[in-house]
Amino acid sequence: MSRDGLRVRGRSQRRGAKDGPDAGPADRHPGEAAGTALRAVGLSRTYGRGENLVRAVDGVDLDVPAGQTFAVTGPSGCGKSTLLQLFGGLDRPTEGEVWLGGRRVDHLGERALARLRRRAVGFVFQSFHLMDELTAAENVELPALLAGASPRTARRRAAGLLDRVGVADRARHLPSKLSGGQRQRVAIARALVNEPLVVLADEPTGNLDSAATHDVLRLFDELRAAGQTLVVVTHDERVAATADRVVSLRDGALADDIRLGGDGGTGLGTLLGWED
């Protein structure tokens, strides 16, 4: 029941962003319309005990409004990947709460958590994690099938998404026949196939050259315009700078929170040195 609630909410959020004024009650800014997509309350994850206690994530409070893109940055070992795993239910917190679309998820049982991961969360990884034996299209269809979609629906959605990410002509290729950038775009299509509440990306451009990085960033930008909530962990400042918010982690705790976009910055003239 509440699972369906999640899905309905995800859809209305997207519709609000795409269809504009005629979308009824969801015609406000997508961020406002759907409230908080992801919430962390006093989130901590420790490993070991006593002398060897490591606080990978240390008391993080964070609200990710629906429709916003967040970048989580920080030096390696600052806990940013662990934080993402806690958000996506791949790991469980030692303390604190994780809420997805208004539902507390950190204490769900294994099966419920697995179901939630499939339906409400889309993952994108640094090394793509595509299945080598499956074609690009099959890789995208698989999570839809696992979530209960009919083969026909899964095929239709996969085809649409591969087109959207610009690799429709590679749909029948195996991952080994694709470039890194193409593989990551397939992985992004896969992350979107169940219309997740939130897409979580861990160093999505870490294995890509600058041209492919550019493509992925452009794609993220399109997703943002369409109202997709996105949390990206990255050590690449250029990736972080494309988000709505940049939060910095140090030793597992939030150290800074920068809101980007909106109110005019210095202007490109200043960047080019034409201020005088």
């Binding site: 452009r218 400042e237 494309t242 910055g265």
Partner: peptide
Amino acid sequence: LIRNLAEAQRAAL
């Protein structure tokens, strides 16, 4: 600098 970079990145994209 992040704000400046955001501006440059938006333009670049």
